[in-house]
Amino acid sequence: MRRIFVVGCPRSGTTLLQSFLAAHPDIHSFPETHVFHRLRAPRGLRRAAGLAAAGATQRLDDAAGWLGVPRARPLLPTVRRHGAAFLAMADAAARKHGAGAWVEKTPANLYALDLIERLVPGALVVHIVRDGADVVASLCAVAGNWGTTYSVDTAIDQWTECIAITDRYRGRERHSVVGYDRLVRDPEGTLTELCAALGLPYTEAMITGREAAARDLVKDFEHWKSDNAGPLRDGAGRRLDEVFDGATRRYVRERVAAVPVREVGSGG
């Protein structure tokens, strides 16, 4: 079973990439589970003992619902047992749909890659990177839907941090990096290269079936992701113009330009 994780800064196109992959006939995917990045307990006795964070079992139960399989509850509430329980459910869901691979897409798993690599044998990780100005504008525009707010500086800092994490993993075995803009402008070329890195054959169904796949991946309340179920659009710079005034646009561009971002394709 191939186990694939899509990660990146929120609003970087993780759902779009997931939708392309989910349309592959040998890949099964499902809505975000938030299992791994919330699996470890905060520092303290619970973490020192290897126990999972409070609420981890409930997240497994929720994941079982999204996966459409019987829930798996570990006998011991450890991080390792919870990870194994999730893998058993995800593998079962993929087999149920006749797939030899599955994709888990929770952007914040970017912060738990060390844990994923320890708990998931052969984990394949796909990072997606998007222009920082567009990410910042989108974060500021949709954060209210998440019950929070982003200042411009907070959004820039988060994007910068995510880029730095991806750069630390770039070039490692089983890690691929996809550029959002290239994915939108040349989906066939980008996905062909990515499939080769994942050990899967490229198929045109990844493009023709993307919109339908997206509708199965977005939860009812996640209306900020609704564009993923529509036609593919190259909107580089559009979000920035929609959200900010001229002075703020200039400030965002200046700060983002100071962050070194390596050219990305679908390889390392």
Results as ranks from 00 to 15, higher is better:
D216L: 14
R215I: 05
P201R: 04
V152M: 12
Y202L: 02
D153K: 12
Y169Q: 01
S176I: 05
D227G: 15
D186S: 09
L217K: 04
W224N: 00
W224I: 00
R174M: 07
V178Q: 04
R172L: 12
V178T: 03
D186P: 01
R172I: 10
I156S: 06
A155P: 09
G171C: 02
W159R: 03
S226P: 01
G209T: 08
R185E: 10
A164Y: 05
K225S: 05
S176L: 07
E222C: 11
G189Y: 04
V177W: 00
Q158A: 03
L217G: 00
H223F: 14
S226H: 14
G230R: 11
G209D: 02
A213T: 02
T208W: 01
G199H: 07
G179H: 02
R174H: 10
R182Y: 09
Q158I: 10
P187R: 15
Y169G: 00
A229P: 15
G209C: 07
A196R: 07
V152P: 04
A214D: 10
K219A: 15
A197M: 07
I207F: 03
V152R: 13
A214K: 00
E161F: 12
T203W: 01
E193A: 03
V178H: 03
G171Y: 07
Q158F: 13
A164L: 02
I207G: 06
N228H: 05
D227V: 14
R210V: 04
S226T: 07
E204R: 15
M206P: 11
I156V: 14
G189P: 12
G179P: 15
E161W: 08
V177G: 02
D220P: 00
V178K: 03
D186R: 11
G171L: 07
Y169T: 02
E204C: 09
I156N: 01
Y202S: 01
S176W: 07
T192M: 04
K225I: 09
R168K: 08
P201C: 04
P187H: 15
A214R: 04
F221M: 10
L198W: 12
E193Q: 05
R170S: 07
A205H: 10
Y202C: 02
P201K: 06
L198V: 06
Q158C: 05
G230M: 12
T190Q: 06
W159P: 05
C195Y: 08
P187C: 14
G179T: 03
D153M: 14
V177R: 02
Y169V: 05
S176A: 15
V177N: 04
H175K: 14
P187A: 15
D181I: 06
G171W: 09
C162N: 04
A213M: 06
I163V: 14
R170D: 11
C162T: 04
K219V: 15
A155L: 08
A197L: 06
L194V: 05
S151A: 08
G179N: 11
V178C: 02
S176D: 15
V184F: 02
C195P: 13
H223K: 11
D216Q: 13
T190H: 07
G171F: 05
D220C: 03
V152Q: 06
E204T: 12
H223V: 14
R174I: 10
T192R: 15
R174F: 13
A229S: 09
